[in-house]
Amino acid sequence: MKNVLCFGDSNTFGTNPNRIGTRHPFDVRWTGRLAGLLGPDWRVIEEGMGGRTTVFDNPLEPQRDGIGALTVVLQSARPIDYAIVALGTNDLKEIFNASPRTVAAAAEFVCQTIERYPYGGCGPAPKILLVSPIHIKPGIENSPYVGFAADAAPRSRELARYYREVAERNGYLFFDASEVAEASDVDKLHMEAASHARYAEAVARILLDDAARAN
């Protein structure tokens, strides 16, 4: 069995844009759909959290920095064949004042931490799929999810070029989620069911194709 860790934020958690504080059902969110698409020879490990950043600590949302949770997650989830890193949206909050290039560097640090973790007898380190997030939609400054200024939307559109560079430089698999999925018009941030489905289908193709090449 191949084990896939999905380490992400609220769109990995499956936050439902139509009802604040709720979550899409397992068979709707992309991680659940991915499990169905990959089949019984794969195990999908959900690790999504609303507000999670790459490395930044937000005093208004404590203990949401991905790097702080990562070692516990890796210890618990190992062995891991693939690690999907789907972070960066929350790094665009006004409090961090982080450029898209800085966000990509922070995502790279998360990926490198996964590579360098001592997996012991549960090694080797997993192959990494780095995901550039969906775009934040204009009007996010009026969303019920506070913390984003108006410039978060255009800055989110710049992430993919830097994420792609990180993936190419390190030999990671890469997926630009904005090519197949989008944020809801309701809250400008989270995916509806149709986008979760397209997201899952794209990720499944990447993983299955890579596994086939490895064999």
Rank of each mutant, 00 (worst) to 15 (best):
E158P: 02
D57A: 14
R157I: 07
A212V: 07
R23T: 04
A149L: 06
G51F: 03
E165C: 09
E168H: 04
G48M: 02
F109A: 14
A194R: 06
N16T: 06
S10G: 14
R164K: 15
G88N: 10
G88S: 05
H190G: 12
D65I: 04
Q112I: 07
L74Y: 01
P118Q: 04
R169L: 14
I45F: 03
D176S: 08
G121M: 11
T71P: 08
P126R: 04
A152M: 07
L34G: 01
D151Q: 15
G51P: 05
L92S: 00
G171Q: 09
S143V: 03
I67H: 12
A167R: 06
V28T: 03
G88A: 12
K137M: 07
R43G: 08
A107N: 05
V103I: 15
T53N: 08
F109D: 10
A105G: 11
N3Y: 11
G121P: 08
E46P: 02
A149I: 03
E192L: 13
G32K: 03
T113R: 15
L5Y: 08
Y162F: 15
Y119H: 08
C111W: 00
Q112F: 08
V85R: 05
D65P: 11
V73M: 01
A200I: 01
P144G: 00
F148Y: 14
L74Q: 01
G51S: 01
F56T: 13
Q63S: 13
P126F: 04
T22K: 06
M191N: 06
K93F: 13
E141P: 03
A98R: 14
S10N: 06
I206W: 02
T54D: 07
N58M: 07
V166N: 12
L87T: 04
I134R: 04
E192C: 14
K2N: 15
A167K: 06
T22C: 07
A193K: 10
F7I: 11
A106E: 09
V131K: 02
A104V: 09
G139Y: 00
K188R: 15
S99C: 10
P154A: 01
P126D: 09
F13K: 15
